[in-house]
Nucleic acid binder design. Structure first.
Lengths: 265, 265
DNA sequence: AACTAAGTTTCACTATTTGGAACTTACCTA
DNA sequence: TAGGTAAGTTCCAAATAGTGAAACTTAGTT
């Protein structure tokens, strides 16, 4: 029943409503939300009022519709800078993309999903907001599998449990067993493939971004089509990607875990 | 005492803490937050736990530091698409930027501040996340004044009250009276200037983006330096900007207030 | 071993949240 | 225009969740 379940306090409930508004992806009326809400009318109403008052949700009184508030855009700017490796990785992504001329994705794990935090596409200019922030499945994407393969055992198990194993293509892995086996192979190989597992004709190679301590910071992938590349030809890019990944990790570590700055003297 | 005051419920308090974490702009320890917090130790602690559990804040147990969570990046992606005019305006910004070759800003009002939601810079590639999400003052920026000038009287008064009137440069307007007078001039002129009021050497022209009903959707500005332009030469771009603005408004209206779609038949 | 600071848990007390039901618009329909 | 229906808003007693001083546990000094 409680699919996305959480033993929520008030804050959790409010954030659930926020997610719900986000899920519509367009301004919604109260009744639309009520229909798909697990909360009673009065409760939902009050939660929405709270969110509006807080600027997390905007309410257009003329139309009577709710939408996500701009306060989120401001928070996200900070979140992206603080919580993601994207600002650190930016110059390296630029360089990599320029040199190999293929689509590059930078991703992080968000619970049991892949969150894309940056992207480069050789052909068109950077499209950050339009691409960053998107989510995808872990079990059938290159970055997802790469990050999962090097995750710590508890987190890994939890995430493996939480996948949906929807069969997107003929090659999609559709069982926990198959995924576990694949993760083993990925670990010994040192990187992950996506062999048309999510979309037909789309293949990629992916590497995890690891701290010196072996903690997964994120994932980096290069994507192409079967028309232009084979897995083998993509694999040739791995050494190049490896050096990008280690430089990102190095920078990220010194940024996120800076040496204690002893008084400036 | 309660500067950012709100008669907050639990949700408000939690969001205050979220803002506080955001304000640091780097991973922070519990004691850093406690120092600058209005909440007692145990309360702050529990609020943080809630936020972490909800994925709005991430906690790195190794270092014992809190940072904004990636869930925000995901929400922001939706917020930017849903709540901002940026996705609609994107192609028009691209075109305008290309044709006039100067820095272009797209902004919206967020409470009493200017929130930049997109930017184009002819010289260097687009830097969305790094620029979008930034905030600035209303009373000394072109977009701010333009949006304020066409705001409805109640909102306008409220915002005028809430400005800080910090004197950034010799030209900064530093009183409500001066600002009101300037807004009158802007209204009759039809667009706003920023005559080095925020930063020395930086000037701009700005237009509001208005619905047919006269409601302020946002603002558009073209920025340059005194070295390259005078206010008069920037003013020559206004007709071009006017057409951009009206096209954005048109698209935004049909997107945000779509005709009721009568069953497809 | 004794001290100190940082972080975490407890628990009696309270303020907030809850949601069924009643109420108010606003808009159809006959 | 009355009568009906659906959408949105408010009420209030009961139930729940939040509060924070203080006690406690670590971890790091001296």
């Amino acid at each position: 029943m409680s699919e996305r379940g959480n033993e929520a306090g008030t804050v959790g409930k409010a954030l659930n409503v926020l997610d719900q508004v986000a899920a519509f992806g367009r301004p919604v009326r109260f009744s639309d939300l009520l229909e798909s809400s697990e909360y009673p009318k009065a409760t939902l109403y009050r939660l929405l009022q709270t969110l509006v008052q807080q600027g997390m949700v905007s309410f257009e009184s003329e139309r009577g519709v709710y939408a996500l508030g701009v306060r989120l855009v401001r928070l996200a700017h900070q979140a992206w800078q603080t919580a993601s490796i994207a600002p650190v990785a930016r110059p390296y992504l630029d360089a990599l993309s320029l040199e190999i001329g293929e689509t590059v994705h930078l991703a992080q794990l968000d619970h049991a999903q892949v969150l894309y935090v940056d992207k480069r596409n050789a052909a068109v200019p950077v499209e950050m907001y339009s691409q960053a922030g998107k989510v995808g499945p872990v079990y059938c994407t290159g970055v997802g599998k790469a990050m999962l393969a090097w995750s710590r055992i508890e987190a890994q198990s939890r995430i493996i449990e939480q996948q949906s194993y929807h069969k997107f293509t003929d090659n999609t892995l559709t069982s926990r067993r198959a995924l576990r086996a694949e993760l083993d192979i990925i670990c010994s190989r040192g990187f992950a493939y996506d062999n048309e597992e999510h979309e037909p004709g789309i293949i990629c190679v992916a590497l995890p971004i690891l701290t010196q301590g072996g903690h997964v910071l994120g994932g980096l992938s290069v994507t192409s089509t079967t028309a232009r590349h084979s897995l083998e030809s993509l694999a040739k890019l791995v050494p190049h990607m490896k050096s990008t990944v280690s430089r990102i990790a190095e920078d990220a570590e010194s940024w996120r875990f800076p040496e204690q700055i002893k008084e400036h003297a």
